[in-house]
Nucleic acid binder design. Structure first.
Lengths: 145, 145
DNA sequence: ATAAAACCTAAACCTAACTTTATGTCAAGA
DNA sequence: TCTTGACATAAAGTTAGGTTTAGGTTTTAT
C-alpha cells in the first residue's frame, strides 16, 4: 500500500494530477483510511494502463469508461478488447501520418541545406528538380500526395 | 488570388480558423483590397507549411516565429533549417514512443482475446507466461521496459 | 506535546487553439 | 437600386487537462 506522495514519485506525476484522476473516476473504489487514499496493486496497475491509454490518445472520459468496465467483471471483456483494438488502429494511423510529416521535414531540411550552400532561396522551387537526391525526391513526392 | 472562403474549402479549414491564423501572425503582410483578404501563392504555400509544422507538434507561436523569419530573407536560412531539424528529431522520437505504445496495445489485445476464450481474467497475470506467443512476449517485454 | 510535513476538499484559475456572437461593411446578381 | 451572401472586427465563450489557492485535518518526528 502506497500513499499519494509515494505514487507521485513512482510515476513522476504531480500529486494534484493523481487527485484529479481520482476525481474524474479513473481510480474507482480506491481505499481510504480516515480520508487518506491508499494506493494498492489494483491502483498501480490502473495507473500503468492509464499511462498507456493516454499516450495512445484516449481522453480522460473514455479512460473512465474503461475503468468502469473493469469493475463490472468478465461481461465487459469484449468491450475492453474492442477499445484496445480501436486504439491500436488509431496509433497505427498516427504513425503513418507522422511518417509523411517526417518526409516533408526531410525535404525541408535538404531544401534549406541547399539554400544555405548557395545563398539564394529563389534558385530552388517547391518542385522536384533533377539535382535532387533520389531519397529526397522520394520524400518530396511522398509528402506532397 | 483567392478569397478566404475559397481557401477555407481548399484546406478544409473553417473561415474562423484562417482569420485566427492571420490574427496570430501566421500570414504576415497578406494583401487586402478594401479590407478584404486576398490569398496569393505565398499564403497558400504558407498554409501548406503551417499544416506540416502543426502536425509535427509545433505551437502557433513558434510557427509565427518561423513565418517572421521567412520575411527576413536569406539571413535566417540557418535558423529555419535548425527548426526543421529539431522537428524532425521530435517526430522521430514521437514515432518511437508510439511504437512502444503499440506493443503494449498488442499485448492487451492478445490478453483480452485469451480472457474471452476461457472466460476468466484471473488465469492471466500481467507477466510473461510460457504459453504466450513469441511475438506477444516480445511486445510485452518491449512495452514494459 | 508540539511543530512540521503530508494529507484532504472545493473552487478558482490557467493555457492553447479555436469558435461563437454581435455588429457592421462590401460586392454581385435580379 | 436593393437585397442577399460573403466579408470584416472585437470580445466573449469553449474544451481538455490539468494547477493553484485557501482553508482545514492527519501523521510523523522530535
Amino acid at each position: 500500500m502506497y500513499t499519494i506522495g509515494q505514487v507521485s514519485e513512482m510515476f513522476h506525476l504531480p500529486v494534484s494530477t493523481l487527485r484529479y484522476y481520482d476525481k474524474e473516476g479513473l481510480l474507482p473504489n480506491i481505499e481510504r483510511v480516515s480520508g487518506i487514499r491508499k494506493f494498492g496493486e489494483r491502483e498501480i496497475e490502473a495507473l500503468r494502463v492509464i499511462e498507456c491509454l493516454k499516450k495512445s490518445g484516449l481522453e480522460i472520459k473514455q479512460i473512465k469508461q474503461f475503468m468502469q468496465w473493469c469493475t463490472e467483471g468478465s461481461a465487459t471483456y469484449p468491450k475492453r478488447k474492442e477499445l484496445f483494438e480501436t486504439q491500436k488502429k488509431q496509433v497505427e494511423e498516427e504513425i503513418e501520418r507522422l511518417n509523411k510529416v517526417l518526409d516533408m521535414l526531410r525535404f525541408k531540411c535538404w531544401y534549406y541545406g541547399e539554400a544555405i550552400r548557395d545563398g539564394n532561396e529563389d534558385r530552388l522551387s517547391d518542385l522536384p528538380t533533377p539535382d535532387m537526391p533520389e531519397d529526397i525526391r522520394k520524400a518530396y513526392l511522398h509528402s506532397h500526395q
